[in-house]
Protein backbone atom coordinates (compact mmCIF):
# COMPACT_ATOMS: atom_id res chain seq x y z
CA UNK A 1 0.00 0.00 0.00
CA UNK A 2 1.44 3.35 -0.98
CA UNK A 3 1.49 5.71 1.95
CA UNK A 4 2.93 9.07 2.99
CA UNK A 5 6.44 9.47 1.66
CA UNK A 6 9.50 11.45 2.58
CA UNK A 7 13.01 12.11 1.31
CA UNK A 8 16.10 12.22 3.49
CA UNK A 9 18.96 14.18 1.94
CA UNK A 10 22.16 13.71 3.95
CA UNK A 11 24.46 16.44 2.63
CA UNK A 12 27.38 14.96 4.61
CA UNK A 13 27.37 12.18 2.02
CA UNK A 14 26.76 14.42 -0.98
CA UNK A 15 29.80 14.96 -3.19
CA UNK A 16 28.13 17.31 -5.69
CA UNK A 17 28.36 14.81 -8.55
CA UNK A 18 25.03 16.12 -9.95
CA UNK A 19 23.80 12.71 -10.96
CA UNK A 20 20.50 13.69 -9.33
CA UNK A 21 20.27 16.89 -11.36
CA UNK A 22 20.87 15.01 -14.61
CA UNK A 23 18.56 12.10 -13.70
CA UNK A 24 15.74 14.53 -12.98
CA UNK A 25 16.20 16.20 -16.35
CA UNK A 26 16.24 12.84 -18.06
CA UNK A 27 13.17 11.41 -16.37
CA UNK A 28 11.11 14.56 -16.93
CA UNK A 29 12.59 15.06 -20.39
CA UNK A 30 13.26 18.67 -19.46
CA UNK A 31 15.31 20.64 -21.94
CA UNK A 32 18.82 21.96 -21.32
CA UNK A 33 19.36 25.73 -21.38
CA UNK A 34 22.36 27.64 -22.66
CA UNK A 35 24.54 28.65 -19.75
CA UNK A 36 27.82 30.46 -19.07
CA UNK A 37 30.62 29.73 -16.63
CA UNK A 38 30.03 32.41 -14.00
CA UNK A 39 32.67 31.46 -11.48
CA UNK A 40 31.00 28.44 -9.94
CA UNK A 41 30.22 24.81 -10.77
CA UNK A 42 26.57 25.64 -10.16
CA UNK A 43 24.74 25.67 -13.47
CA UNK A 44 22.09 26.52 -14.49
CA UNK A 45 22.19 29.31 -11.91
CA UNK A 46 18.70 28.67 -10.57
CA UNK A 47 15.66 26.42 -10.64
CA UNK A 48 13.35 26.96 -13.59
CA UNK A 49 10.61 25.31 -15.57
CA UNK A 50 13.45 23.36 -17.20
CA UNK A 51 15.30 22.53 -13.98
CA UNK A 52 13.42 20.94 -11.07
CA UNK A 53 16.51 19.72 -9.19
CA UNK A 54 19.55 21.92 -8.79
CA UNK A 55 22.74 21.23 -6.88
CA UNK A 56 23.79 24.54 -5.31
CA UNK A 57 27.48 25.07 -4.63
CA UNK A 58 28.86 27.40 -1.99
CA UNK A 59 32.41 27.70 -0.81
CA UNK A 60 34.16 29.68 1.88
CA UNK A 61 36.73 29.36 4.61
CA UNK A 62 35.83 27.85 7.96
CA UNK A 63 36.70 29.20 11.39
CA UNK A 64 39.93 27.17 11.56
CA UNK A 65 41.10 28.37 8.15
CA UNK A 66 39.95 25.19 6.40
CA UNK A 67 38.32 25.57 3.00
CA UNK A 68 34.66 24.62 2.91
CA UNK A 69 32.66 23.49 -0.10
CA UNK A 70 29.02 22.78 0.50
CA UNK A 71 26.60 21.08 -1.90
CA UNK A 72 22.86 21.56 -1.56
CA UNK A 73 20.77 19.42 -3.94
CA UNK A 74 17.83 21.83 -3.92
CA UNK A 75 14.31 20.77 -4.78
CA UNK A 76 10.73 21.31 -3.66
CA UNK A 77 10.26 20.30 -0.02
CA UNK A 78 6.75 18.86 -0.50
CA UNK A 79 5.67 20.65 2.67
CA UNK A 80 3.23 18.99 5.06
CA UNK A 81 1.08 22.15 4.96
CA UNK A 82 2.23 23.64 1.64
CA UNK A 83 1.90 27.45 1.60
CA UNK A 84 1.82 27.43 -2.18
CA UNK A 85 -1.37 25.37 -2.04
CA UNK A 86 -2.87 27.79 0.48
CA UNK A 87 -2.25 30.67 -1.89
CA UNK A 88 -3.23 28.74 -5.00
CA UNK A 89 -6.56 27.62 -3.50
CA UNK A 90 -7.45 31.29 -3.33
CA UNK A 91 -5.76 32.67 -6.41
CA UNK A 92 -5.58 29.76 -8.88
CA UNK A 93 -7.81 26.99 -7.58
CA UNK A 94 -6.97 23.50 -8.65
CA UNK A 95 -3.44 24.33 -9.78
CA UNK A 96 -1.84 22.80 -6.70
CA UNK A 97 -3.03 19.44 -5.41
CA UNK A 98 -1.93 17.17 -2.62
CA UNK A 99 -1.70 13.54 -3.69
CA UNK A 100 -3.94 11.54 -1.33
CA UNK A 101 -1.56 8.64 -0.84
CA UNK A 102 1.99 9.99 -0.92
CA UNK A 103 1.05 13.57 0.06
CA UNK A 104 3.26 14.80 -2.77
CA UNK A 105 2.59 18.44 -3.69
CA UNK A 106 1.77 18.43 -7.39
CA UNK A 107 1.32 21.33 -9.81
CA UNK A 108 -1.41 20.29 -12.26
CA UNK A 109 -0.06 21.22 -15.72
CA UNK A 110 -3.61 21.39 -17.12
CA UNK A 111 -4.63 24.25 -14.85
CA UNK A 112 -3.68 27.72 -16.08
CA UNK A 113 -2.31 30.25 -13.64
CA UNK A 114 -2.29 33.99 -14.17
CA UNK A 115 1.00 35.89 -13.79
CA UNK A 116 -0.41 37.82 -10.82
CA UNK A 117 -1.49 34.64 -9.10
CA UNK A 118 1.91 33.12 -9.73
CA UNK A 119 3.67 36.10 -8.17
CA UNK A 120 1.86 35.54 -4.93
CA UNK A 121 2.28 31.80 -5.02
CA UNK A 122 6.01 32.12 -5.52
CA UNK A 123 6.36 34.80 -2.87
CA UNK A 124 4.70 32.67 -0.23
CA UNK A 125 7.05 29.69 -0.66
CA UNK A 126 9.69 29.97 2.06
CA UNK A 127 12.13 27.99 -0.09
CA UNK A 128 11.53 29.91 -3.34
CA UNK A 129 10.62 26.85 -5.38
CA UNK A 130 7.69 27.59 -7.74
CA UNK A 131 8.59 28.56 -11.32
CA UNK A 132 6.41 29.77 -14.18
CA UNK A 133 6.18 29.41 -17.93
CA UNK A 134 4.61 32.69 -19.07
CA UNK A 135 3.74 31.39 -22.53
CA UNK A 136 1.92 28.33 -21.29
CA UNK A 137 0.67 30.10 -18.18
CA UNK A 138 1.50 27.23 -15.92
CA UNK A 139 3.72 26.46 -12.95
CA UNK A 140 6.16 23.61 -12.57
CA UNK A 141 8.54 22.05 -10.05
CA UNK A 142 9.63 18.69 -8.67
CA UNK A 143 6.85 16.12 -9.01
CA UNK A 144 8.25 13.65 -6.47
CA UNK A 145 8.36 11.45 -9.61
CA UNK A 146 4.74 10.67 -8.76
CA UNK A 147 4.46 8.49 -11.87
CA UNK A 148 7.38 6.35 -10.68
CA UNK A 149 6.34 6.30 -7.04
CA UNK A 150 2.78 5.27 -7.93
CA UNK A 151 4.27 2.19 -9.55
CA UNK A 152 6.36 1.29 -6.51
CA UNK A 153 9.60 2.82 -7.80
CA UNK A 154 11.74 5.48 -6.13
CA UNK A 155 12.29 8.95 -7.62
CA UNK A 156 14.92 9.19 -10.37
CA UNK A 157 17.26 11.41 -8.33
CA UNK A 158 17.24 8.98 -5.40
CA UNK A 159 17.84 6.01 -7.69
CA UNK A 160 20.88 7.66 -9.24
CA UNK A 161 22.65 8.91 -6.11
CA UNK A 162 25.83 6.83 -5.76
CA UNK A 163 26.69 7.61 -2.14
CA UNK A 164 23.33 7.08 -0.53
CA UNK A 165 23.02 10.78 0.29
CA UNK A 166 19.48 10.67 -1.10
CA UNK A 167 17.02 8.30 0.52
CA UNK A 168 13.28 7.89 -0.05
CA UNK A 169 10.59 5.90 1.68
CA UNK A 170 7.69 5.90 4.09
CA UNK A 171 7.75 8.97 6.30
CA UNK A 172 8.05 7.07 9.56
CA UNK A 173 11.08 5.14 8.30
CA UNK A 174 12.70 8.25 6.88
CA UNK A 175 12.12 10.30 10.03
CA UNK A 176 13.74 7.60 12.12
CA UNK A 177 16.68 7.40 9.70
CA UNK A 178 17.13 11.17 9.81
CA UNK A 179 17.09 11.38 13.59
CA UNK A 180 19.57 8.52 13.96
CA UNK A 181 21.91 9.93 11.36
CA UNK A 182 21.77 13.38 12.98
CA UNK A 183 22.93 11.85 16.26
CA UNK A 184 25.88 10.22 14.49
CA UNK A 185 26.88 13.36 12.62
CA UNK A 186 26.54 15.59 15.73
CA UNK A 187 29.38 13.60 17.32
CA UNK A 188 31.77 15.27 14.89
CA UNK A 189 29.89 18.36 13.71
CA UNK A 190 28.30 20.22 16.63
CA UNK A 191 26.29 22.56 14.41
CA UNK A 192 24.65 19.75 12.42
CA UNK A 193 20.87 19.93 12.12
CA UNK A 194 17.86 18.62 10.27
CA UNK A 195 16.17 21.44 8.35
CA UNK A 196 12.52 22.02 9.31
CA UNK A 197 11.89 18.28 9.78
CA UNK A 198 8.37 18.75 11.13
CA UNK A 199 7.26 21.00 8.29
CA UNK A 200 8.59 19.27 5.18
CA UNK A 201 8.71 15.89 3.51
CA UNK A 202 12.17 16.51 2.07
CA UNK A 203 14.40 16.52 5.12
CA UNK A 204 17.92 17.87 4.65
CA UNK A 205 20.72 17.14 7.07
CA UNK A 206 23.44 19.78 7.09
CA UNK A 207 26.60 19.86 9.15
CA UNK A 208 26.80 23.64 9.29
CA UNK A 209 24.39 26.60 9.51
CA UNK A 210 21.79 26.22 6.71
CA UNK A 211 22.41 29.75 5.40
CA UNK A 212 25.97 28.74 4.51
CA UNK A 213 24.49 26.36 1.94
CA UNK A 214 21.84 28.56 0.39
CA UNK A 215 19.79 31.62 1.28
CA UNK A 216 16.51 29.69 1.15
CA UNK A 217 17.75 26.37 2.53
CA UNK A 218 15.69 26.74 5.70
CA UNK A 219 12.76 28.70 7.00
CA UNK A 220 12.51 30.32 10.40
CA UNK A 221 9.04 29.16 11.30
CA UNK A 222 8.96 25.46 12.12
CA UNK A 223 5.55 25.07 10.54
CA UNK A 224 6.85 26.35 7.22
CA UNK A 225 4.52 29.29 7.30
CA UNK A 226 6.32 32.56 7.33
CA UNK A 227 5.53 35.90 8.82
CA UNK A 228 5.52 37.12 5.25
CA UNK A 229 2.30 35.24 4.64
CA UNK A 230 0.66 36.53 7.74
CA UNK A 231 1.59 40.06 6.78
CA UNK A 232 0.09 39.67 3.35
CA UNK A 233 -3.12 38.53 5.05
CA UNK A 234 -3.35 35.56 2.71
CA UNK A 235 -3.68 33.23 5.61
CA UNK A 236 -7.22 32.15 6.37
CA UNK A 237 -8.30 29.72 9.03
CA UNK A 238 -7.76 26.10 8.14
CA UNK A 239 -9.98 23.71 10.04
CA UNK A 240 -8.19 20.49 9.19
CA UNK A 241 -5.91 18.75 6.73
CA UNK A 242 -8.96 17.40 4.93
CA UNK A 243 -9.88 20.95 3.95
CA UNK A 244 -6.72 20.95 1.90
CA UNK A 245 -7.05 17.66 0.20
CA UNK A 246 -10.60 18.52 -0.79
Amino acid sequence: MITRKSFFIDTTKCTGCRGCQAACKQWNQNPATKTRQQGTFQNPPDLSTATFKLVRFSSGTGPSGEPEWYFFPDQCRHCIYPPCKMAADLKAPGSVILDTRTRAVIYDPAVKVSPEAFKEIRAICPFDIPRYDAKLARMSKCTMCIDRVSEGLIPACVKTCPTGAMQFGDRSTIRKMAVERLAEVRKIYRRASLINPEAVRVIFLVKDYPEKYYEYAATEDAKGITRKMALKKILHPVASLEDWIG
Partner: peptide, 17 residues
Protein backbone atom coordinates in the same frame (compact mmCIF):
# COMPACT_ATOMS: atom_id res chain seq x y z
CA UNK B 1 34.71 41.56 -16.97
CA UNK B 2 32.25 38.79 -16.22
CA UNK B 3 29.56 38.43 -18.83
CA UNK B 4 26.02 38.05 -17.63
CA UNK B 5 24.36 34.67 -17.82
CA UNK B 6 23.23 33.58 -21.29
CA UNK B 7 19.81 34.99 -22.31
CA UNK B 8 17.99 31.66 -22.36
CA UNK B 9 19.03 30.80 -18.82
CA UNK B 10 18.01 34.24 -17.68
CA UNK B 11 14.53 33.97 -19.14
CA UNK B 12 14.10 30.60 -17.57
CA UNK B 13 14.80 32.13 -14.18
CA UNK B 14 11.49 34.00 -13.98
CA UNK B 15 12.74 36.89 -12.00
CA UNK B 16 10.98 37.83 -8.82
CA UNK B 17 10.94 41.44 -9.82
Amino acid sequence: DKRSQAPAAKAAQNERG
